Amino acid sequence: MGRWEPNARGRLAEAALQLYSEHGYEQTTVAEIARRAGLTERTFFRHYADKREVLFGGSDELRERFVQAVTDAPPSAAPIDVLAAALDAASGLFTERRAHARRRQAVIVANAELLERELIKLSSLSAALADTLRRRGVAEPAASLTAEAGVAVFKVGFERWIADAETREMAQVMRETLDELKAVTAGG
């Protein structure tokens, strides 16, 4: 193995997903992931804190997209419209990644530890959104409710988007899911 290899982080993530899919999360070791990626365990730990985090490497970027869209929304925009913009922005991360997202989600759903980690990441996303909404002047409890609703829409929309029969773009599925939430809250 060379001292420097291009795209080590991406190679580790792909190797982990392959191994988790083939052998299961619990049966896969960091050493096996590093070996499959053609790297060392030391390199693995330079990029990821543990073997769970390799599946959640994009969480920070997802949170940044959501927060940046909320920050950039026009000051006069209603919280629900700000949320719609954030969902559109987040959807851009998943362009051309549906097959990967399906494989990743199948691994997560099969393991309680990974499901717990995903919920922690979503809770962190909600907290960041609520904080950003409060900085925009959205009062409580509206800021927290909007953030929680946004994460719920993202979660439900994501699950719909990765369904085998779904072929539409993620942004379209997210908008439709948000519209369904609006209809429910309007009494429809």
Rank of each mutant, 00 (worst) to 15 (best):
V107P: 09
P79N: 06
Q105M: 15
Q105G: 03
A143V: 06
A130W: 01
R117D: 08
H100P: 00
V138H: 01
D88F: 10
L129W: 05
L119G: 14
E140A: 09
A73C: 05
A112L: 12
L87A: 11
S124F: 00
P74L: 10
H100V: 14
R103Q: 15
R135N: 04
L114R: 07
A149T: 09
V156R: 12
R102M: 15
A139K: 07
T132I: 02
V82Q: 01
P75S: 14
N111L: 05
R117S: 11
R98F: 11
S123P: 00
L87W: 09
T71D: 09
V138F: 01
V67C: 07
A77F: 05
A112I: 07
L122P: 00
S124W: 01
H100D: 13
H100S: 13
E116G: 14
A73S: 12
V82I: 10
E148N: 08
L87M: 10
S123C: 00
A90C: 14
G157Y: 07
A106V: 12
A147I: 03
A89P: 10
F158S: 09
K121G: 06
R102D: 07
A142C: 03
L133H: 02
P75D: 14
L83Y: 00
L115Y: 06
F94M: 11
A69T: 11
A78I: 00
D72F: 13
Q105I: 09
V67Y: 05
L125D: 03
A128L: 05
R102H: 11
D72Q: 15
R117H: 13
I80E: 08
L93I: 06
H100C: 01
D131S: 11
A106N: 11
D88R: 14
L122S: 05
A143P: 04
A85V: 03
T71I: 11
A73E: 00
I108R: 09
A69C: 12
